[in-house]
Amino acid sequence: MNSTVRISRIVSIYYLITGLGFSLSSDYYVTMVAHTSSDPVLINLSGMVHFFIGMTILVHHFKWKKPLQIAVSLSGVFFLLKGVFLIVLPELTLQTGNNPAQSPWIMSISFIGVGLLVGYFAYFRKYEDK
């Protein structure tokens, strides 16, 4: 199994579980996304975790030729950018919680859709890394 398939299998399950979380615990995620009374240390730790996950993906996988490669590399870029913004510009980043596009059902559908798409190619399609 190559790195693209290995990482995409992990990322697809993460997206599916996150989408399920937004669906089943929507009240909790509404509060979380609003960032009311967020602990600065936890925000920084969240930034650090996102940064490390993104950098780890990109250090081991920076491929942009095939759709699954692009999905994995984009996931790494998104994790990295979220981490950087949470560390460097936390106040600005936390203001995005008031965005109406971040309703739990939209987030749930988006995460589940991406998870199913990436998961389909990662688990059920023959993939050769060339």
Rank of each mutant, 00 (worst) to 15 (best):
T4C: 07
V5A: 03
R6N: 05
I7V: 08
I7Q: 07
I7T: 02
R9Q: 15
I13T: 14
I13R: 13
Y14T: 04
Y15H: 12
L16S: 01
I17V: 15
I17H: 08
G19C: 02
L20E: 00
F22Q: 11
S23H: 08
L24C: 08
S26D: 07
D27Y: 12
Y28G: 02
Y28A: 14
Y29D: 02
V30F: 01
A34H: 09
H35A: 15
S37V: 06
D39M: 07
P40R: 13
V41E: 13
L42K: 13
M48N: 00
V49Q: 01
H50K: 02
F51A: 01
I53Y: 01
M55N: 01
T56C: 09
V59Y: 05
H61I: 10
K63P: 01
W64E: 05
P67N: 06
L68G: 05
I70F: 07
L74R: 10
S75T: 11
V77I: 15
F85I: 09
L86R: 13
V88A: 09
E91P: 00
E91N: 15
L94D: 02
N98V: 10
A101V: 08
A101N: 11
Q102G: 02
Q102E: 05
Q102A: 05
I106H: 03
S110K: 13
G113N: 02
G115F: 11
L116Y: 08
G119C: 04
G119M: 02
Y120N: 10
F121E: 03
F121A: 09
A122W: 13
A122L: 02
F124H: 10
R125E: 12
K126M: 04
Y127D: 04
E128T: 08
